[in-house]
């Protein structure tokens, strides 16, 4: 008696979780005529891929996707380059900065963005970085850094210190030991952090909304939102297709790192 009820509940969850996703997919495969007919059906009558092609030829969408890509790549690389030395030091020596980093991760959760974003906007304005991609990159780096630092120092900690010391004893210099012994062992962790920073930046909406007022420099999330406001039912197909395409990088990278991310969140939740 229990099993069937459990399966029924599981089915309920699957439906709740999946139906918006399936509807997005269904909308993306419909022709504009079918969208205009106003009798929506789950299965498209004449499934087409033209919406995806449309999304690719839409100047706004391609341009903003490229800008999102530039910002995401730049900010993830910068985040890791800045965080790696600090993470190494955090993992190897105890210092006040460890406490500061953990404290900051927690504090930044509690404080509403508005308290940071107004002064940040003023800082960026005085540096002439408003409406520029470097401006947004700086913001993304700053806000991904604490968590990236936290992730990275965990990976450094998992490389045994003895290994490093043994290499140094064997006559390899300190730098050589770092490059030859530590770096290869650290590589998967660095990649995971890079991907995490990439997803954060690629998905980010709020800071982009404040920093990039000029539509000519809009990133992908901004363009997608603008798209819905202005257009009618007929344009929903390309919008759905573009939304799906925008999700692919995040979903793919997330699939790679989700196990590591889960353990990170857990460490935070249990210790928090």
């Amino acid at each position: 008696m229990r099993r069937p009820l459990q399966y029924l509940a599981l089915l309920g969850y699957m439906v709740f979780l999946a139906f918006p996703l399936l509807w997005l997919l269904s909308t993306a495969l419909k022709t504009s005529q079918e969208m205009a007919s106003l009798t929506p059906t789950w299965i498209p009558r004449h499934p087409v891929l033209t919406n995806f092609a449309d999304a690719f030829t839409e100047q706004d969408i391609v341009g903003s996707a490229l800008r999102s890509l530039v910002v995401a790549v730049a900010s993830s690389v910068l985040t890791v380059v800045l965080a790696l030395p600090a993470a190494y030091s955090m993992a190897r020596h105890r210092s006040l900065v460890n406490k500061f980093a953990i404290g900051w991760v927690l504090v930044s959760q509690v404080f509403p963005f508005i308290l940071i974003i107004i002064p940040l906007f003023m800082v960026l304005r005085s540096l002439d970085l408003v409406n520029t991609l470097p401006g947004l990159t700086v913001v993304h780096v700053t806000f991904t850094l604490p968590f990236a630092l936290w992730m990275l120092q965990g990976y450094v900690r998992s490389v045994p210190r003895e290994l490093e010391e043994a290499a140094a004893v064997d006559g390899a210099g300190r730098i050589r030991a770092l490059v030859r012994i530590v770096a290869p062992l650290l590589a998967p962790g660095v990649v995971a952090t890079l991907l995490f920073a990439f997803i954060s930046s690629w998905n980010e909406f709020l800071f982009a909304l404040v920093v990039l007022k000029d539509p000519d420099v809009a990133t992908l999330p901004l363009t997608l939102v603008k798209f819905t406001g202005a257009e009618g039912v007929v344009r929903l197909g390309p919008l759905a297709a573009a939304s799906l395409l925008a999700t692919i990088p995040s979903l793919a990278f997330f699939a790679i790192i989700q196990r590591r991310l889960r353990s990170g969140l857990l460490a935070g939740a249990v210790k928090g």
Binding site: F19, P20, L21, W23, N203, L224, A246, S250, L251
Partner: peptide, 20 residues
């Protein structure tokens, strides 16, 4: 399936539900 919303850009989640 339960992990998908975590990875999706919030903007896409919003747009998707507007379609629903």
């Amino acid at each position: 399936l339960a992990m998908v919303p975590w990875a999706m850009p919030p903007v896409v989640i919003g747009l998707m539900w507007r379609l629903v």
